[in-house]
Design a protein around this nucleic acid. Structure first.
Length: 575
DNA sequence: GCCGTTTTCGGCCCGACTGTTTTCAGTCG
């Protein structure tokens, strides 16, 4: 059973408890545990089998027992019991925007609503207004909510960071160019470099806030907007991303920026801990509860300082232990883009890239790198993009020739991204692989095999003395293709033991290792490499996404091999 | 149901918005 399936079962049980009128914190506990299980880098089913389920934050003794029952019998007894009381389809009713568990329960008790069809009929038949506290407007909202639920374009509602980020930056630039603008910052998940974004948050201070908001909605990127006012405006871009501009007095800019940078989990923990110290934190300021005195912060750093924390960079604000670390001076010094000295995964026109070897090499050199590996696809890649063994030998000679004509500060590496076959073998003869300066091994075929088979397949590549690095370990495409099943702990252990490096692929569709897997792998002692997998000179810029993923995984520069000089890098290699 | 620089019991973020109400409950982020 996957983490997602376990999480879904617990989410469902949480809603059932809410319908049953349980104390809200109890239901809440199921939601937070489900989220942690979904994010767990290791299989929670495996953890549970080993009696270690309570290692997942938010999972205690009771929830661990329920997970055990779920894994053994496919059901949780408490859920079975509640499903006898409420139709399971009532859970779907609570997912309609604007309809929560309280409303769903009353619709069930008083109107006999058991599913989405009943709900629609009740709204259309104007029967909801008969309930105390609900009126005609509630019926309209239900119907609108049902529309939104059925709209596939809104089903996930999240876009890739690489889609949102350039828009957010362009909108921030638009705001900054206006004379009324004082300070402008992008907040929210874009600022935290999350994988995906639900919307774009912009925070500003301004001399004439309404004038700034009016200027903002006139941007060619904005398709529709509400009424610009002194507090900002809500708008939508042409590609359907919601944008929230909030304008605030300069003395509370830090409070607002902190609040809207989130994450929600980070803010909840921050505020809970503040309550314990007699302080109440909101986007408006920090209130000393006893005296009622409110302190506003013009700068975000002052918010953290006032609450007794070292400054926490946005990438770490996910409620994964950063507050405790910030209190105990235990925050890592995170790797930064400026630390990166080379890129070790790139493609050229030899396989499926868009630029030639010369163009890619020049672009790497111009970025100030000390080294760069050209790693085109291997012999069995297919789609006409394969590179035969004969052509690979020629490529090695081409790279050597290029280096002879170069200034020596920059070294081009002859490499390959070699397919890992179903049996774990590479698709070039060993003597050709040995002649390469750098070998990335990746899975590109047969994703649908079992976790056990996939793990054995990748472990075989890790144990191969000629393999330097494993590319995009789980094969996921964010929002489009689930990662294939693989035992991350076993891979991390083998990588650490053999000196095989694990890549964080910076393609914003992949970001693979994920931040969760990367953190686990580094903790296990594996060496991480940040690569772009660039298929053209433009996508060499994707190093920023690899670095962001590493930062969100708490990695420091010394855990990342390509922050080293090529000489020091060599000391980390197994061959 | 979870959890601990205040706690093994008694707490559990905070505010905006909405729609329905004459003061607030429910929902959302």
């Amino acid at each position: 059973m996957t983490n997602a399936e376990i999480a879904a079962a617990l989410d469902e049980l949480g809603v059932l408890y809410q319908l049953d009128g349980a104390v809200k914190y109890r239901a809440l506990a199921y939601g937070t545990a489900a989220k942690a299980i979904r994010e767990s880098p290791v299989s929670v089913a495996d953890l549970a089998a080993a009696g270690r389920a309570t290692e997942v934050p938010g999972v205690g003794k009771t929830l661990a027992e329920k997970i055990d029952a779920l894994l053994e019998t496919g059901e949780i007894p408490a859920a079975v019991k509640l499903k006898a009381k409420f139709p399971p389809t009532l859970v779907e009713v609570t997912r309609v925007p604007g309809v929560g568990p309280k409303t769903a329960r009353r619709l069930f008790d008083e109107l006999g609503v058991t599913n989405l069809e009943d709900l629609k009929a009740a709204a259309e038949g104007k029967r909801i207004r008969a309930l105390k506290g609900l009126g005609p407007k509630a019926e309209e909202n239900v119907l609108a909510g049902l529309e939104r639920l059925g709209d596939p374009s809104e089903s996930s509602g999240r876009v890739l960071l690489s889609m949102a980020r350039p828009i957010a930056e362009e909108l921030a630039r638009t705001l900054r160019e206006h004379p009324a603008a004082d300070r402008v910052e992008v907040a929210g998940s874009v600022r935290r470099w999350a994988e995906t974004c639900k919307d774009i948050d912009l925070i500003a201070t301004a001399e004439e806030p309404t004038a700034l908001a009016e200027h903002f909605v006139a941007s060619p990127l904005i398709a529709a907007a509400g009424t610009p006012g002194p507090n900002g405006v809500r708008a939508q871009t042409h590609n359907g991303i919601s944008v929230d501009l909030r304008i605030v007095a300069p003395d509370a800019f830090g409070n607002l920026l902190q609040h809207f940078t989130g994450s929600q989990a980070h803010n909840v923990q921050l505020r809970e801990q503040a309550v314990g110290r007699g302080l109440s934190v909101s986007e408006h300021g920090i209130t000393e509860v006893e005296s009622g005195e409110v302190e506003r912060c013009a700068d975000e750093a002052a918010v953290y300082e006032r609450l007794g924390y070292a400054y926490i960079v946005p990438e770490l604000r996910e409620g994964r232990g950063e507050l405790k670390a910030a209190r105990e001076e235990g925050l890592p010094k995170l790797v930064a883009l400026e630390d990166i000295r080379g890129d070790l995964h790139s493609h050229t026109t030899l396989s499926d890239g868009r630029n030639t070897l010369e163009e890619m090499a020049a672009a790497g050199h111009d970025r100030g790198y000390a080294y760069m590996a050209i790693t085109d696809h291997s012999a069995s890649h297919g789609f006409g993009d394969h590179v035969t063994t004969e052509r690979l030998w020629e490529r090695i000679a081409e790279v050597e020739a290029w280096n002879e004509g170069s200034d020596g500060d920059f070294r081009l590496l002859a490499g390959s991204e070699i397919n890992i076959g179903l049996d774990g073998a590479l698709d070039y003869p060993d003597e050709a692989v040995e002649a390469l300066n750098w070998v990335v091994a990746s899975v590109h075929t047969s994703f649908a095999i079992s976790e056990k088979e996939m793990t054995a397949r990748v472990l075989a590549a890790i144990e191969n003395p000629l393999v330097d690095c494993i590319g995009h370990l789980t094969g996921r495409l964010i929002g489009r293709r689930e990662p294939y099943g693989i035992d991350i702990e076993a891979v991390a252990e083998a990588a650490a033991r053999t000196g095989t490096m694990l890549e964080i692929n910076g393609n914003p569709n992949r970001r693979d290792l994920s931040e969760h897997h990367a953190r686990l792998a580094a903790q296990a002692g594996a060496t991480i490499v940040l690569n772009t997998d660039a298929h053209g000179v433009d996508t060499l810029n994707n190093m920023a996404y690899a670095v962001a993923t590493a930062r969100r995984a708490w990695l420091s520069a010394d855990q990342v091999a390509n922050t080293k000089s090529w000489q020091d890098f060599g000391k980390l290699r197994k061959r």
